[in-house]
Write a protein that binds this DNA or RNA. Structure first.
Length: 274
DNA sequence: AGGCGTTCCTGGGGGC
DNA sequence: TGCCCCCAGGAACGCC
């Protein structure tokens, strides 16, 4: 399930092949993959379809041109494979062909992934919160944001309009590292724990990026697995001893998601009488 | 406002 | 072995 580090890993991987090259064609192999445009629009709208840059915003891979951007969202099971050979797979949903004979094969078993065409980042920015690794994302800002909401902390961190890029894995990891139970209510978490959470979110994301992300089931880049899987502390560890206190890690359902938690060392901050 | 259920999808696992 | 059912989950959407 690609989250910020996995998307960043994909960007780092495809960037050198694409920047400066002209996009020849986007071929939708599966009908619904192009979310807000048609194959022909690429020729009509993209006047000089030379790739200016490839970068990440939230969980989107942004391929930018002079006056437009193409945004790719991998959702659950999307993968990009870059190759100058024919790529065979049952689950190709789209192919982006470049002038240098390289193509990006969008492979997506569950078909939730989509490709978008926009003039610029405005639409995406309007629906997304700050980048957790961004310069402006200070612990004071985060404290203010979290305390202004009275909301389940896990649901809040998963909400892309609140903060960008986090998903189920890195939320569980960050909350565990910070000793905050995912059932907590955001504005009741003490300041020192919010600061700790801020720092652990950034630390976890950076370490994951340095290890090319996490491979649970589906994520890889051109078949290469992310190594962060080896560094996970709670995610997927139901029944195993907590690395901090030796209590058993439990799997619960919180905010509609499978959630891994140590009930002993993750403090639950909730209203006493409710 | 925020929580919750539903939808989109398919493969894989459990139960029998 | 086989078949059915349920589950996984990011994000959008509708409902209360």
């Amino acid at each position: 399930m690609p989250e910020l580090p996995e998307v960043q890993t994909v960007v780092n991987h495809i960037r050198p092949t694409c920047v400066g090259k002209r996009l020849k064609r986007i071929q939708p192999v599966w009908g619904k993959v192009l979310h807000n445009f048609k194959e022909a629009d690429v020729n009509l709208i993209l006047d000089r379809p030379k790739v200016v840059d490839v970068y990440r915003r939230a969980k989107f891979i942004i391929i930018s041109f002079k006056n437009h951007i193409i945004a790719i969202h991998l959702r659950m099971t999307g993968k990009l494979n870059v190759t100058d050979e024919h790529f065979r797979s049952k689950h190709i949903t789209a192919v982006l062909e470049f002038e240098n004979d390289y193509s990006i094969y969008f492979e997506d078993v569950r078909k939730f992934g989509r490709i978008y065409l926009y003039d610029d980042l405005k639409v995406i920015d309007s629906k997304h919160g700050p980048e957790p690794l961004g310069k402006n994302f200070t612990n004071q800002l985060f404290k203010k944001m979290v305390s202004q909401k009275r909301r389940n902390i896990k649901a809040l961190l998963l909400d892309q309009t609140f903060i960008s890029g986090l998903g189920n894995i890195y939320v569980d990891e960050s909350l565990w590292k910070s000793g905050i139970h995912p059932s907590s209510t955001s504005n009741l978490v003490p300041e020192n724990k919010i600061f700790s959470l801020h720092s652990n979110i950034r630390l976890t994301l950076r370490e994951a990026i340095n290890n090319n992300g996490t491979t649970i089931i589906d994520f890889n880049v051109n078949g290469e697995s992310g190594r962060y899987t080896n560094y996970l502390c709670v995610y997927g560890k139901a029944g195993e001893p907590c690395l901090k206190c030796n209590d058993r890690i439990e799997k619960l359902k919180i905010a509609g998601r499978g959630t891994y938690v140590c009930n002993k060392c993750q403090m639950k901050y909730v209203e006493k009488y409710s």
